[in-house]
Design a binder for these strands. Structure first.
Lengths: 158, 158
DNA sequence: GATTACTTGACTAATTTATTCGGGAATTGG
DNA sequence: CCAATTCCCGAATAAATTAGTCAAGTAATC
């Protein structure tokens, strides 16, 4: 389980889709504008997300991307793993030639730690993040098709 | 909370110190040989570990590094943070200029996720890893001969 | 005071992240 | 059909991080 900005970008983008997709799919251009991520980088990321079955794509005008599943069935762990491909982790990637005395002490060390972190991130879904986001977000702002804001809600606590 | 191989190297090295330091300090050369990490890279890592007060150094012949605290008071989170310096995480690092519409949606998103992961890693100490390591270190020979392909390298979803 | 071994910083190479570019292919609307 | 929109793909590039190397120190022991 690697955890870099790349994975964060992916999660952020997916959260954007979850938030802004109504019936119509969300275009990468829109995500790029809202989240300030380069369009081509998004294309790369969504290519992986699509090939991993996390999003569906619709081509042509009015096209874009949609979540392949409901947000509550989409875990953060999946998203990160989809874009952070090589989850090798143990530095000797399966080969047994690590050492002579004992086999690369870190084998099960990281396997265990990974399992824990992975387990944790598998317990968090996009729906959780949406819920966390909504309260200070309900004034959905000006969407592309001039859907205007409602009431600006709460200021946060911490 | 970034989580890269760099942090893993650091934890592995610290675990090595915890395992092999008796009364005498452990030299980087020994760690380098055992863990197959380049000596100069270890120098960099231990420079940071020392400046962060995680290890004490002893110079001169017979010198080396020792844990600054007992293993049970040394968390994995600390180690990783010591070497993975920039824990900025939110890509706009505190500045409020993220966006116009809402302030960088990911602010508290990652802050929260980070807090969780960090909390988890703060709950794991070097002593835990030592304990995990000790039992399977005694039957080294047995493992070497018999169980060759037990551990899959990737932490898979199952 | 000479040897051992840590200390430090600067420098390079390799890898990963992020961006840019240039063209395609599918779909919709006119 | 035509043109606009949008996904799709690959290559090239730039920036950042990771990993490794080198060389000149400082401290401690014998």
């Amino acid at each position: 389980m690697r955890l870099t900005t790349k994975g964060r970008f992916a999660v952020t983008a997916m959260l954007d889709v979850a938030l802004y997709a109504g019936d119509a799919p969300v275009t990468l251009a829109a995500i790029s504008a809202r989240q300030k991520i380069s369009l081509s980088y998004l294309e790369q990321l969504f290519g992986k997300l699509r090939r991993n079955g996390l999003v569906d794509s619709v081509r042509g005008p009015g096209g874009g991307y949609q979540l392949a599943r409901t947000p509550d069935a989409m875990t953060i762990a999946e998203i990160i793993r989809a874009v952070d491909e090589p989850i090798d982790a143990t530095q000797c990637g399966g080969r047994e030639n690590c050492h002579d005395d004992r086999r690369c002490m870190t084998h099960e060390l990281w396997a265990g730690l990974n399992a824990h972190i992975f387990g944790f991130l598998r317990g968090v879904t996009l729906a959780d993040l949406v819920a966390q986001q909504k309260p200070r977000q309900t004034d959905v702002v000006v969407m592309k098709d001039h859907r205007v804001a409602t009431a600006p809600t709460t200021v946060d606590a911490a």
